[in-house]
Nucleic acid binder design. Structure first.
Lengths: 122, 122
DNA sequence: GTTGAGAGTTTCTAAATGTATACTATGGAT
DNA sequence: ATCCATAGTATACATTTAGAAACTCTCAAC
């Protein structure tokens, strides 16, 4: 008998990963390999995200250990750079798995494969 | 440049799968192999779920093709039986992957493995 | 001393989601 | 006639989440 009392590992994972924009941020950081990306760079790539949500998501991801934040205060304006940690990179295959699952079982629907997601690298 | 315009396959998958209780329902159906489970049986296993949410989730999962619903009206009271489809069963490894990921990267936290999730079969 | 870029924060509002509690329909058993 | 189990619905309420728009802070350059 289970109770949804937040002890479930998978649920906890789902919980932060399934928030809006989180995946897209992870993918954006994944594109470009190990290169660090700046706050404004991420923001520019994700047209419609608001600064509030972006900074919230980045904090969550950092707290969960999937990304790192590093402030470069040597120049001005200060740059903040984000990149995937090993754990973050290790999460990417799970996203791939989901895409593979969807392509296998939902081929009748519009899938990003055929729309505009060729740059998502999965 | 991406826009979160719901064309993303992975996002659409996440979207229904990450709703509260959905995973647990899937796991409950997965336990016990191919045996069908009844509405009340599922409900009893998941102590705190309300009937509204359970029936909502079951409908979503059916619509998404991960489970099937079959009404057995031959006896009384009528039985409704749910079971995983092939696509539903095929989703289980993704959940496993998440658990493996979490066990690898978050061993410092309480994980269901060590708490009460031994019956989750992942 | 005003402008400007980068990296956010704040406040307020709206929409989506979930919870609690009570109610319905069916038909057999008592 | 009434009670009971199964399989849900319905209504009202609470919480969570996201979005819009404006504001802040730092320091360097003009």
């Amino acid at each position: 008998m289970y109770t949804m009392d937040d002890n479930c590992t998978v649920y906890k994972t789902m919980d932060f990963i399934s928030k809006k924009w989180t995946l897209l941020i992870l993918l954006e950081l994944f594109k470009g390999g190990k290169r660090k990306k700046r706050y404004s760079e991420i923001k520019d790539k994700m047209e419609d995200i608001t600064p509030k949500i972006l900074s919230q998501r980045l904090k969550e991801l950092e707290k969960e250990g999937l990304i790192t934040r590093r402030v470069d205060a040597s120049q001005f304006p200060v740059k903040t750079e984000y990149s995937l940690t090993e754990s973050g990179r290790d999460f990417i295959p799970i996203i791939s798995q989901m895409k593979i699952w969807a392509l296998k079982w939902k081929p009748h629907k519009d899938l990003c494969e055929s729309v505009d997601c060729k740059n998502c690298d999965l």
